[in-house]
Computed example of a mutant assay.
Amino acid sequence: MSRLRTRPTRDDTRDRLFEAAARIFEEQGIGGASIEAIAAAAGFTRGAFYSNFKSKDELIIAMLADHVEQSIRRNLDLLDRHKNLADFIDALKNMDKSRQDPLGRSPLLHMEMILFVARAEKRRPDLAKRLRARRKLITDIVETTLKNSGRNGSLNPAWTGAIVLALEDGFRLHRLIDPETTPADSFLRAISDLQRAIGISSA
């Protein structure tokens, strides 16, 4: 009796390529990583890679898009369960990172990939879409937590969201440059300090 041969779905193939690419990028650098090495690390042929992505740049854009989509779902789910800022920050601190996508598990790789893509001017509009989506997510979080703290209208959520996002990316870049003086939790610590400074209660 012959066995049924099961093939990975398109989503499974992409996920395996994402995981393999993250490993190869961290080991060999983004610029030095070859499509052959990524495909082999995922257990696929070069042809399987090209059936999903036209180039390494397209793979990277897809990984960034996937990360933003997963981050939005994850954060909105947390916000639904933790509606004040202090509790939301605590939930972020205690989140199980092992279950996140490769870029969620490695914020430094995320920043490296953003910088790599940003060097190509024609790719910047793709990055801009992800940036706007991230900014809107943080704006929604700020708006919801301000409303639930009774301080709705005390701050401009869109501008505050832009500041918070710049702060997050800044700490990621600083950690990439000088990890010794930039702890992994620097961003969340800074947000907690700001929350106390502007007097948003945890009630």
Rank of each mutant, 00 (worst) to 15 (best):
D80I: 02
D80E: 14
H82I: 02
L85D: 00
A86W: 08
D87G: 13
L92S: 03
M95P: 00
M95A: 15
D96E: 10
K97T: 13
S98V: 12
R99D: 02
R99C: 00
R99Q: 12
D101S: 13
G104A: 02
G104P: 01
G104C: 01
R105A: 06
P107K: 06
P107T: 12
L108W: 07
H110D: 11
M111T: 14
M113D: 03
R119N: 00
A120N: 14
E121T: 07
K122W: 04
P125C: 05
K129L: 06
K129F: 00
K129E: 08
R130Q: 12
R130C: 04
R130S: 04
A133N: 01
R134L: 13
R135A: 15
T139Y: 06
T139P: 09
T139M: 08
T139W: 08
D140Y: 07
E143K: 11
E143A: 15
K147E: 12
N148E: 15
R151K: 15
S154L: 14
L155G: 01
P157C: 05
P157I: 09
A162M: 09
A162R: 03
L165Q: 02
L165N: 00
A166F: 05
E168I: 12
D169R: 13
G170K: 10
H174F: 13
T182F: 06
S186H: 03
L188Q: 03
A190G: 04
D193W: 12
